[in-house]
């Protein structure tokens, strides 16, 4: 199982802050594609630039996923 978190504008568009996935694809990029394929708001939201993190570190699409991982999806950051 992995835990998936969504933040800021992306979370507002999806209407979901957090979910647990019992089954998940082998890589972060494949997970993103799987989420985008849910259709409706999901396809649209993931067509924008979305940053990704695995276990609270920025990560690229080739990053492998393992049981217990925490995955974060969020828009480009605007702090400071």
């Amino acid at each position: 199982m992995i835990r998936v978190l969504y933040f800021a504008r992306l979370r507002d568009r999806l209407g979901v802050a957090e979910e647990q996935l019992e089954t998940f694809p082998p890589t972060l990029g494949a997970l993103r594609e799987q989420l985008a394929a849910r259709g409706g708001d999901w396809g649209e939201a993931f067509s924008d630039r979305v940053l990704m993190a695995v276990n609270q570190e920025m990560a690229g699409p080739e990053t492998p996923l393992a049981d217990g991982d925490e995955v974060g999806f969020f828009p480009p950051v605007t702090g400071g």
Partner: peptide
């Protein structure tokens, strides 16, 4: 500051005087 602006996961949301809200876009 320059790296924080692009790598630290913070997001700003503005509330306007008319009560509307908008997320700030990255520059």
């Amino acid at each position: 500051m320059d790296i924080l602006k692009t790598e630290a996961p913070f997001w700003k949301k503005e509330r306007l005087p008319d009560g509307g809200e908008r997320w700030v876009d990255a520059r």
